[in-house]
Design a protein around this nucleic acid. Structure first.
Ligand SMILES: [Zn+2]
Ligand SMILES: [Zn+2]
Ligand SMILES: [Zn+2]
Ligand SMILES: [Zn+2]
Lengths: 171, 171
DNA sequence: TCAAGAATGTTATATTATATCCTTCCACAT
DNA sequence: ATGTGGAAGGATATAATATAACATTCTTGA
């Protein structure tokens, strides 16, 4: 029995035109399975928030989610509603928080918990999650070799994505 | 002519008992020289804010600075006063911002601008700046090899400092 | 069917940060 | 020495992000 893990989303697609509904659907399906396996409840609200976070490959603020969630509703949602859902998704490893932007982004490979390395475009905000296990490990080693005991690493790299570099050189 | 650079503050002292006034005075003197050399104005206010940020080896919030600054004043300072001073100090590389804590900490080697790697104790909040040029370079290389153009790196490592590890094992 | 706990709703407030406009100060040229 | 322009700081208001506390509803399993 070989239940092969779904191939990891190629995050580089974040930079190119693509059928983004595939990204969303894939993320939602995967989240459903992951929560089932862990006995966690991916409620309608949580799923909806996850979907909203996945509306783009750019980090989304909690209040953006709140606004989208409330759109067309008779009674708009309140902040705790969104923050609680985001907290749940963070705990399950389904999204990451981008501290430098106070924003959230869907995790592109949520199957195993991990610290992310994020490449954040300063121009278009498109953010790609890099698989940099080795670099993280090296950092941890450097930290721990000083007597520190690492529990979490936060790495956010700002700069220009390939597309925005091109545009810059066009001028 | 060999105007040797002052030895870098040994940041590991952050974890041990030490004469902290030395840290503060050294930071202030160094800042004075650096600003002179760059033709920047380290005004009384800015110097005072820098001193307040340096009151400990823990990141300090802007509103903490604000409170300390206002203490005993007839009329308390307003947020922009502090944020402007902090912005100046950030620009001059005299302090760093810790995004995961929304707080600021004095830079332990401000002579040359650099991205920091911070070891943040989750228990006592003591934060040490690590000199990890190689690790940062590796990360940059990893990022740039994907076509990204890095301009800034943000690395914050949370965990337990040596002291707090000992205390934890005492129980 | 009921009880316990999880999830969500609701209201209020805390915390962090910025916009805007006005006044004061300082370096420099006249 | 005096005026001038720009930088710095004061003051007021408000934006943006996040949480506390408590009430209600929903789910699940005994
Ligand atoms: Zn996509
Ligand atoms: Zn871009
Ligand atoms: Zn010290
Ligand atoms: Zn500690």
């Amino acid at each position: 029995m070989t239940t092969t893990v779904e191939p990891v989303l190629h995050e580089s697609r974040a930079y190119t035109a693509h059928d983004h509904t595939t990204c969303i659907n894939s993320a939602l399906e995967r989240a459903t399975v992951i929560c089932q396996e862990k006995g966690q409840r991916l409620t309608a609200l949580r799923k909806q928030v996850l979907e909203l976070v996945w509306q783009s490959h750019k980090p989304v603020g909690a209040y953006d989610v709140l606004a989208m969630l409330s759109k067309g509703q008779e009674r708009p949602a309140a902040p705790p509603t969104v923050y609680r859902a985001l907290d749940f998704l963070l705990e399950q490893g389904l999204i990451h928080r981008i501290a430098s932007l106070n924003a959230f982004i869907g995790c592109s490979c949520p199957d195993t918990p991990h610290a992310g390395v994020f490449l954040i475009c300063e121009k278009c905000r498109t953010t790609r999650e890099l698989d940099s296990h080795d670099n993280i490990q090296n950092l941890k080693n450097a930290a721990d070799s000083t007597g520190f005991k690492t529990s979490k690493t936060l790495i956010e790299i700002s700069g220009l994505c390939p597309c925005c570099q091109e545009e810059a050189s066009d001028e």
